[in-house]
Design a protein around this nucleic acid. Structure first.
Lengths: 207, 207
DNA sequence: CGGCACCTCGAACTAACGATGGATGCCGGA
DNA sequence: TCCGGCATCCATCGTTAGTTCGAGGTGCCG
C-alpha cells in the first residue's frame, strides 16, 4: 500500500487526483495540503509519496517545500506536479530533491505509473528535463551569474540602464557590461530578445 | 436535474470536477470534452451547462469554442473556467456569450453555486471582471487595436522595429507609430516596459 | 602563488529607439 | 452626411542602447 499526500492549492485538482488514485487498490491518499507550509507539515505523518504542485497562490512555493521535506532523512519521495514542462522551477525542485516531475495534463495512467515508480525509489524524469539538467551542468557558459540574473530581471520589468544602475548602485557602464555578457550567453542582441529568451528558458518568472 | 458538459484538456481537472459534482444530486455530468472542437460537438447533445476551460493545449481555444456554442439559439449556457482571473481571454469569452466565469482555485461550494445560478439563467461575474468589462467599454483608450497587439507581440519576441516592419510589410515609421500608441495606452515609455505591462494585463500569452 | 571567474568602471563610437508633428485614405456610427 | 477612430505613411532630432576597447578590484581554488 502506497500512502500519498496531495499538495495543491486547487481543490478541483486535489479532488481529481484523489478520484484518480481511488481506482487503484494499492494507492491510498492519506492527506491533502492546500499550501506549501501544510505540505511540509503533513509530510511527516507517515507518507510514502508526496505529489507536490509547484505553484501555490500564497506563501511557500513547491520547490522550497520540497527542499524542506527532503531535509529529513527517511523523508517521503516527492513527485513534482506542474502545468508546463518549461517551468523553471522544475530544475529547482529536482535539485531540491524531487524524485521526478509530472505534467498535469498527462494521461492518468502515466501519473499512476510514475507514483508506483517513485515508490520503488526510481527516478522519473522526462527526457526534456533530464537533458536540461545536463545542459545546465555541462555548458557552464549558458548559465547566468546571480548578478546578471538580477540585472536581467530588472530589464524584464522595463527599466532603463540608468534606472537599473541607480537601483543596484552601479555605474551605467557596468550595467551595459552585464548586458553584453547576458546577450552573449543567451545568443541574442537586444534587451527585449534577452527577456524573451530568458522567459523561454525559464530564467524569469512568468507571473 | 442539471446536465453538465465538462470541457478541459486536463484529465485530472475533469476527474476533479466530476467528483465534485457527483456529491450533488441535482447535478449530472453527462459528457466530457478534451478539446475545444469536442466541446462544440458535445454541447449539442442535450446539455444544460457547459463548463469551459479557456486554455487548451491544441486547437480551438475556449473563447472561440464558446462563441461557436452560443451561436445556436437555445444553446446551453457556458461557464468559463480559468486559472487566473487576470486572463485576457475572460473578456473575450464573456463577449462571446459566456454566462460567467469561475476560477479553478475557487472553493467547491462556489463552483456548485455558480452552476446552479447559471442554470437559472443568472449571470455570475466576479466584481473584478465586471469592472474590467466596464473599463473596457468606458475608457476606450485602454484596449489595443488588433494591429497594435500584433506589433506588440512581435516586440515581445525581441524583434527590432525594422524586423517587424518587414514581417508585417510596413515601413519602420509605421511600426514606430504603432508603438507610440501602444506606449500611450499602456502608459509606459519603452518597448520592454510595454511588454512587461502587457504581460501583466494579459494582453500577451505567457507561454 | 598564479590563474580564473566575477564584478566593477570608463570612454568613444554606431545603431537603434522614442518623441514630435504632420499627412492620407478608409470605414462605421451618430 | 460628417466626424472620429483606425491604419498607414513620412521626416527630423535628441536620447538610449549596444559595441568595442580597455583596465582594476575581489575572492576562490589548485
Amino acid at each position: 500500500m502506497i500512502r500519498l499526500l496531495i499538495a495543491d492549492d486547487h481543490p478541483v485538482v486535489r479532488a481529481g487526483l484523489r478520484a484518480l488514485f481511488a481506482t487503484e487498490p494499492d494507492l491510498d491518499v492519506v492527506a491533502e495540503a492546500a499550501t506549501g507550509e501544510q505540505a511540509v507539515e503533513q509530510s511527516r505523518a507517515g507518507v510514502d509519496i508526496v505529489l507536490m504542485d509547484l505553484q501555490f497562490g500564497h506563501g511557500m512555493q513547491g520547490a522550497e517545500a520540497t527542499r524542506r521535506i527532503r531535509e529529513d532523512p527517511g523523508a517521503p519521495y516527492v513527485l513534482v506536479l506542474t502545468n508546463y514542462d518549461t517551468d523553471a522551477d522544475i530544475l529547482g525542485a529536482v535539485e531540491a530533491g524531487a524524485a521526478g516531475y509530472l505534467l498535469k495534463d498527462a494521461p492518468p495512467v502515466e501519473l499512476i505509473a510514475a507514483v508506483r515508480a517513485a515508490a520503488r525509489g526510481e527516478s522519473a524524469l522526462a527526457p526534456t528535463v533530464a537533458g536540461r539538467l545536463e545542459a545546465r551542468q555541462n555548458s557552464s557558459g549558458e548559465t547566468l551569474t546571480t548578478r546578471e540574473a538580477e540585472v536581467l530581471s530588472l530589464v524584464a520589468d522595463g527599466r532603463s540602464n540608468r534606472d537599473i544602475a541607480k537601483s543596484l548602485f552601479l555605474s551605467e557602464a557596468t550595467v551595459k557590461s552585464h548586458l553584453v555578457h547576458i546577450f552573449t550567453k543567451l545568443q541574442v542582441s537586444s534587451r527585449t530578445a534577452a527577456v524573451a529568451s530568458a522567459r523561454d528558458r525559464g530564467y524569469i518568472r512568468p507571473a
